[in-house]
Write a protein that binds this DNA or RNA. Structure first.
Length: 477
RNA sequence: UGCCCGGUAGCUCAGUGGCAGAGCAGGUGACUGUUAAUCACUUGGUCGCUGGUUCGAUCCCAGCCCGGGCAGCCA
């Protein structure tokens, strides 16, 4: 940042450095002087003084400030200290005389930094999540969203910590991609062509050869294929970045833009993959419990009463594992009538996945070895050729949270699979090269970061665990 | 994309084929180491939009827009 020199309006830096609310609340001794900066949550006036609850987002709780009516600024400023106003307070941290808190701040001076008038839409209580979505620029100031986004920040850090501590290397895979045949859903086109006057070929088609990249380009739906490249060099890698799917999905667990974590391990099979997935999910839960205890407690109270016991339960028990073939047998032996009856070879529907995780196993469950016909070309073909070494981790309440597989490392088997899926070898020459030169068994998976956050926070809609949700028809902010 | 539910004050909602309602928020006053403070009074409306039926529509009908739930696709 540029520094101001010799400027008359240069503001003298504060003599005191700022104390975060979190640190003030966790103080072990009184403080003679501190500077608080934050936003007014509520104000309660008495005759001789006012109570102001100040929150600065450093933690869930705010701190109570006592502003005596005798303060010089009181008469002019206190009436402007509405909910939502930003405020700066200098004073002492003292043990509270009141009941609800250990510490409070006795103001020696305070000023309103930025007013918030009566149109400020956040009230002390009673907003629906739908309303808060419409004010996504203000909702981080609410208790719930402050908590959600603190947990999101912490778990993003925990992702790196988990992999880095296991000697995985972080790879930045591209966001713009030119391969459109990964089969992971509809792609968003990336182009600089003028949509109303695109260049045309002699055949009358749009000439993408004249586009920015000289060919058709898209936003990535997965970093997996590029991740495999790096796993076949650095051994253990992970990606963590945004992913884009242009599916017209209108559900509480799909977004057009979401963040995905994709580890890829060389010299690893499906068993190792499942083990890592379980360890990873448990690590994230444990980390949130350790570092976001107050926020999780808030979710347990106001979002999902069973959240904390469920998370503990998930940590304690080993995840269940069950082959696709067994899963079909369990579903059909349940004696239930299904909206979508299944037999071997069919996709598992939501109702089946929910039944397995929520009722049969009552626990996260990894379903593996799916029929070859249901899965993409890159998954490793099992003995007998009918199934592939795929895995999906299903969790209660959400369903699929992880999808992964052991990859096909045998050149000829992979070529057959590509031919079967009608994929041109020319486009995948580099992917095939990985099997031509020093191929190794390798495996990996993708974890939807938002779905994990839904599981950890109990929040039921993906739009409420991502700062600015992109869903069909909506890209505000 | 399909099926279902909804749209009334800033927010959460009730309601009726015939003067538009409550709680909270906002305002004024009182009271109090308060803490979702309390009490009294009070401001506040294109009843989503367009058209139709009707003497009269916020209400009934149609179309559209917006939001939500579920399903499919997936993470």
């Amino acid at each position: 940042m540029p520094r101001a020199h010799g400027c008359a309006s240069f503001r003298v830096p504060p003599a005191m450095s700022r104390t975060l609310v979190k640190d003030a609340l966790n103080a072990t001794a009184p403080m003679d002087s501190l500077l608080l900066q934050g936003w007014v949550r509520t104000r309660r006036d008495a005759k001789a003084f006012s109570f102001i609850e100040v929150n600065d987002g450093s933690c869930l709780k705010g701190i109570q400030v006592i502003a005596d009516a005798g303060l010089p600024s009181y008469a002019d400023e206190i009436a402007r200290a509405h909910t939502g106003a930003s405020i700066e307070v200098r004073g002492k941290l003292v043990p509270s005389k009141g009941q609800g808190q250990q510490w409070e701040v006795v103001a020696e001076s305070f000023r309103i930094v930025g007013e918030a008038d009566a149109t400020y839409p956040l009230q002390k209580k009673g907003h629906t999540l739908e309303f808060l979505r419409e004010i996504a620029h203000l909702r981080p100031r609410s208790n719930l969203f402050g908590a959600v986004f603190r947990v999101r920040s912490r778990l993003a850090f925990a992702v790196h910590e988990f992999f880095q501590s296991r000697s995985f290397h972080y790879v930045h895979t591209p966001i713009v991609t030119a391969s459109d045949c990964e089969g992971a859903g509809e792609l968003f086109r990336v182009t600089t062509l003028d949509p109303s006057h695109p260049p045309m070929t002699e055949e009358g088609d749009v000439d993408f050869g004249k586009d920015f990249f000289g060919k058709k380009a898209y936003l990535t739906v997965s970093g997996q294929l590029e991740g495999e490249i790096f796993a076949c060099a650095l051994s253990n890698i992970y990606t963590f970045g945004p992913t884009f799917r242009a599916e017209n999905s209108n559900t509480s667990r799909h977004a057009a833009e979401f963040w995905m974590i994709e580890p890829e391990m060389a010299f690893c099979d499906l068993q190792g993959n499942m083990a890592l997935a379980e360890e990873f999910v448990k690590h994230l839960i444990r980390d949130a419990k350790t570092h976001c205890a107050a926020d999780l407690e808030f979710f347990g109270k106001f979002v999902d009463k069973e959240l904390l016991t469920r998370l503990d339960f998930v940590l304690e028990r080993p995840f269940q594992r069950c082959s696709y073939t067994e899963a079909i047998a369990i579903i059909n032996a349940s004696g239930r009538t299904w909206e979508h009856p299944v037999e071997w070879g069919d996709n598992l529907q939501s109702e089946h996945e929910r039944f397995l995780a929520e009722e049969h196993f009552k626990c996260p469950v990894t379903v593996y070895n799916y029929p070859r016909t249901l899965k993409p070309f890159y998954m490793r073909v099992n003995e007998g050729g009918k199934t592939v070494a795929a895995m999906d981790l299903l969790v209660p309440g959400i369903g699929e949270i992880i999808g992964g597989s052991q990859r096909e490392e045998r050149l000829e088997v992979l070529r057959e699979a590509m031919a079967h899926h009608k994929l041109p070898e020319k486009e995948y020459w580099w992917y095939l090269d990985l099997r031509r030169y020093g191929t190794v068994p390798h495996a990996g998976f993708g974890l939807g970061f938002e779905r994990m956050l839904m599981f950890v926070t109990g929040v039921g809609n993906i739009r409420d665990v991502i700062p600015f949700a992109r869903t069909p028809g909506t890209a505000e902010f």
